[in-house]
Design a protein around this nucleic acid. Structure first.
Lengths: 242, 242
DNA sequence: TAGCACCTATAGCGTTGCTATATGAACTGA
DNA sequence: TCAGTTCATATAGCAACGCTATAGGTGCTA
């Protein structure tokens, strides 16, 4: 009943913890279970991870690396908004494949514990949205769009996890996904919308230029000029213009 | 250090558990802490609630009643979509006011434990969306819209809870809220438009912004600022960058 | 071979969730 | 009026929990 004895104890502990967590269905996993499955004695756990929480943090960190790897795994399609869709779907799939890990990562977040994971996930999505902004496809700041989309993505994934697997309807995901992308994208070009969606072309262009400048290291302006320029650009792109 | 001795022990246990949970910051709350604060002995807890989990389920149920009461508390404005906005804001505020309770209710949801709460919350929102649908303001089925909006609402609330209180930016909430409502509302009458072919660079973006600025009479910059801004914009857009 | 980190194990502490059992109070029916 | 019954609380204690004081073994460098 123990994991292969050839791997180093630290790794065996990690795997045992991850395995028991995945099977736990929310019930607490004891250190004794973990160390027994790993074929190791109690103090070894505390030597390597300091804490039960330290061990679980390490499991979460490993899970997050897997998540990031999945989010980067596909080649950019050249259509940034399409790539955002794939990031979204990938996120949902990760959550459904490893629900317990996901619940620890995104369901149990507290200010004092793990905001770093959220920040990293946001950065990942913002990176992709920068490309959309550079292509003039965004009508809000990439950072705000990333935070908003990720929040909805997390909410949808949690809801799907909460449903019995048999009843899961992924339309909830695709519908919410497209609604969010639709709302932040510059494309629709229809009449002004309530609540600030549908910005003027000045804002769209300013956001696109801002993103393009961030990515290109233009040297046409001195650093002090650039600083002031970006400040004005920000002013233009954050407040609706006539 | 014990709660008023006049209330029945069952109620005292409930309040003690809720109070300790709220202060716990995620750390586990022991039954001994609870029973001591309630001024009661261990078996009393098990007599009334069977289980530690049973007690916490009761706390959650009470919290949910409070949530529902809050969601019903305001008079319908006659504009269903406006009422949805208020429901959304109310939901977020509930989560920020009682983060620990909220995390148990919506952050730790598993198929085998509490989908009932989600179903009830969805029903609450669907009820309101039915009015919008009856007024011809909805793009999709009320049930699907309710599920989608609630999912985003939960995601946003969790993200805000995860942030240190000082850094919380409620714009994330209003932006996501309006994006979701915009997407499900019948007003725009145009479908999502996946990625356009606008491949862009700093130069193209600068030119686009320049043209947009000329046409829009933005007043975000003073005239002297604008003059310098346009000059820099010209410099950027006439010489290839990066 | 001596010394020294590093890693792991034995044994056990204090606390946890929970319960077997007993005691008291309140109601019932004759 | 009072035994019988039911409900509610308390005493005391069990097995399992997270964690640690201490010590022993291993492989390096000198």
């Amino acid at each position: 009943m123990s994991l292969d004895g050839q791997l180093p104890p630290k790794l065996r502990l990690l795997r045992a913890a991850a395995e028991l967590l995945a099977k736990s269905a929310g019930a607490p996993v004891s250190t004794r279970q973990i160390t027994q499955l790993a074929g190791v004695s109690a103090p070894t756990l505390y030597h390597h991870f300091g804490d039960k929480e330290g061990l679980f943090d390490a499991v979460v960190a490993a899970g997050f690396e897997e998540y990031v790897a999945g989010e980067r795994d596909f080649a950019p399609s050249g259509q940034p908004l399409e790539d955002i869709r794939r990031m979204w779907d990938n996120h949902v799939q990760f959550g459904l494949n490893q629900p317990e890990l996901y619940l620890v990562m995104f369901g149990n977040i507290r200010p004092e514990s793990r905001p770093a994971i959220v920040a990293d996930a946001e950065a990942l999505m913002e990176e992709m949205l920068n490309k959309a902004a550079a292509a003039g496809q965004l009508n809000v700041q990439p950072r705000e769009a990333a935070r908003s989309i990720l929040a909805a993505n997390v909410g949808v994934t949690l809801m799907l996890i909460a449903e019995p697997a048999a009843e899961r309807n992924l339309e909830l995901s695709t519908m919410t996904r497209d609604a969010m992308i639709f709302a932040v994208s510059a494309e629709p070009a229809s009449g002004p919308a309530p609540g600030g969606a549908g910005k003027s072309s000045v804002v769209v262009a300013a956001i696109a230029l801002n993103a393009a400048l961030q990515a290109s290291h233009s040297d046409q302006l001195s650093s002090s000029e650039l600083k002031l320029f970006l400040e004005w650009l920000h002013r233009i792109s954050t407040t609706p213009a006539g």
